[in-house]
Nucleic acid binder design. Sequence first.
DNA 1: TATTGTTATACTCTATAACTATA
DNA 2: TATAGTTATAGAGTATAACAATA
Lengths: 151, 151
Amino acid sequence: MDEITKISFVEEVDTSYLETLMGYNSRRAALAIIGVFLERMAKYELRPVDFSVLSLVSHNPGITSRQLCNALGVLAPNLVGMVTALEKRGLITRCPHPHDGRAMGLHLTEDGKTLLKAAEETASKLEFDCTPNLSSAERKTLIRLLKKIYK
Amino acid sequence: MDEITKISFVEEVDTSYLETLMGYNSRRAALAIIGVFLERMAKYELRPVDFSVLSLVSHNPGITSRQLCNALGVLAPNLVGMVTALEKRGLITRCPHPHDGRAMGLHLTEDGKTLLKAAEETASKLEFDCTPNLSSAERKTLIRLLKKIYK
DNA sequence: TATTGTTATACTCTATAACTATA
DNA sequence: TATAGTTATAGAGTATAACAATA
């Protein structure tokens, strides 16, 4: 076809095919929620990964870096800086692991517990604010189906 | 509390709190699907964003870079290199926009159409392979609910 | 010999400022 | 004056290789 004949243009973009794909939809939904997360967690200076680390340390006192990496899909070299930063902020401490001299068990400080409590409340509230068009049953269904994909 | 008293350690990591959060679940699901996507699209040398660009150009002949940016949430400076690379690979062409001398309309070449056809078939098959535990109805429900979050 | 934590480093992705050509 | 496309560049995120200490 001659190039000069390609005179079509687009008024409204048709995204209907991409919207049939689970990967496209789940990524768009995740990015929408993470956007709100970033805004509301800015006052705590917590990125999603920082929040996840603090939350896992809170619910798993003595968890090791390796266990955090496995649980969150973060590579070990990239976790080092995050843990160091959280320790410097006085939110977590590294204690010797009772059964493994190589490892360090992570624990929240009192300041860390206080911050995480507020952050978890913010996160839980965000759940509902990000899904205003979902009923409680739909929200439950959505989470159940998402787990079926990645677990 | 004295540090020496923190002798707890973790056998199995408890992620139950994070799993109550929509952001966590949608991100994990998206990453799981994208991982499979990367593997299967490697033979076409297409990343998710390249696939999305080709697909949108295919279903919207004459679409502009600006429209692609808006539809995909990509910043304009970051799209330039992608479009240039796809053009150099002979998959798309830039034609003058019929109504706007600043803009360029994008079109698939014959090679681009051939490649995208195979890639879209791979993507559609991937949908089912990534969700083996979901019924057809559940898959439909999941996509409907995800759209309610980001649209 | 394998694993935990670490450093160094490279690569990719994303974001901002500024320029040009045209509207 | 505003917008489409572009360039240059900075910052954040993600990846691999290699090392010391311990299992």
